[in-house]
Amino acid sequence: MSSVIYERMRVNPKFQKLVHERGRFAWTLATIVLVLFYGFFMLVAFKPGLLGQPIAEGSMWAIGYTVELCMFVFFWLLTVVYVRRANGEFDDLTAELIKEAQKERL
C-alpha cells in the first residue's frame, strides 16, 4: 500500500526538486566544512610556524587561535543556516508532497 504512495511521490516533480535542491545544499555545506577543516589540519601539519604568528604586530592573538575561533563560530552558523532552510522551505515542500500523494488515493 505505502509502496503505491512512495511511487506517486517519486514521480512527483516536487520530489525531484526536493531531493535535488536539498542534496546540493547539504553537500555544498559539508564540502565547505571538510575543505576548511582538513585544509586547516594540513596547515597545522606542514606550516605550524605560520599559525603561531600574531595577527598584527605586538598583538597577543595568534593567527591559529583566531582562525580556529572563527571556524568554531562559522561551522555553527552553517548548522543554523541548514536547519533554518531544511526545517522551513524543504519541510514545507515535503509536507505538500505527502499531502498530494495521499490525496490521489481518494
Partner: peptide, 16 residues
C-alpha cells in the same frame, strides 16, 4: 586544535 577535531564531526552528521 584537538577540540576543533571533536567539534567538526557534528556539522557533517547534520548535513549528511
Amino acid at each position: 586544535i584537538y577540540m576543533l577535531a571533536f567539534f567538526a564531526g557534528w556539522p557533517i552528521i547534520l548535513f549528511l
